[in-house]
Design a protein around this nucleic acid. Structure first.
Lengths: 113, 113
DNA sequence: ATAACATGCAACCAAATGGTTGTAGATGTT
DNA sequence: AACATCTACAACCATTTGGTTGCATGTTAT
């Protein structure tokens, strides 16, 4: 299973940034396990509805989640491929460590645009 | 190879946050490939020395990097175990997606304190 | 001893983040 | 039609972030 879609620096920034918040990680977990409406999610956290909605928007921007309209609800679903891309990035760091990367610039290129 | 050191929510926040910046990811790459002094690193980027020093401090706080004093220099080295912990976290998300986690609370507990 | 170099840290600044409340538009229910 | 529910978004606010410059300290070389 190859997950090799090139991500821009900015996209990688957004990806890790989105994961750098416990509430957002929790939303990712729940929506990977199964879709949930924004208001369903909102009931789970001790903050305003708008705050949860913002977190979902951040996750959308990082492409960790999609929203699908169903009636008046928006069903939020986690995108496993994006998790896999994050894994692929971390893998490349591990490979550097293991000395498996001869040309370091090859790796740099991987992340450019 | 088991990498299962429990990380607090705050530690995970710091870990992903530290990775959410292209300059810092670059520093991690370089220092995983081999140690480098702070000033060596600083010459590589188009920003002040102090800015680079701050980035290194953020990486230290996330335990992605250590500094070892050698004379007047501080040799910065990447910590591969911390990359592996990030991988382990992402793995757990993938497993949720694959439906391998029956009790979701078991995973929550994993990240709590 | 003096000069040069590597580092650490404080003070400052603009922009982004994470939260709030309030208003408004769609959709569903009675 | 009237009402309730789900969502979107703007305006506002305190804090954090990512950068700067300037100054102080420790180490190496002349």
């Amino acid at each position: 299973m190859v997950v090799d879609v090139e991500l821009s620096d900015a996209a990688v920034d957004r990806l890790f940034r989105a994961l750098a918040d416990a509430t957002r990680r929790d939303i990712v977990r729940r929506t990977l396990a199964g879709g949930a409406s924004v208001s369903e999610l909102a009931t789970a956290y001790d903050m305003s509805w708008a705050a949860v909605q913002k977190h979902v928007a951040v996750l959308e921007g990082a492409e960790l989640v999609t929203k699908e309209a169903r009636g008046r609800e928006r069903i939020v679903r986690g995108i496993p491929q994006q998790i896999q891309r994050a894994q692929a990035l971390l893998d490349s760091y591990e490979q550097i460590w293991r000395g498996r990367v001869q040309r370091l610039d090859a790796l740099f290129a991987e992340e450019d645009n």
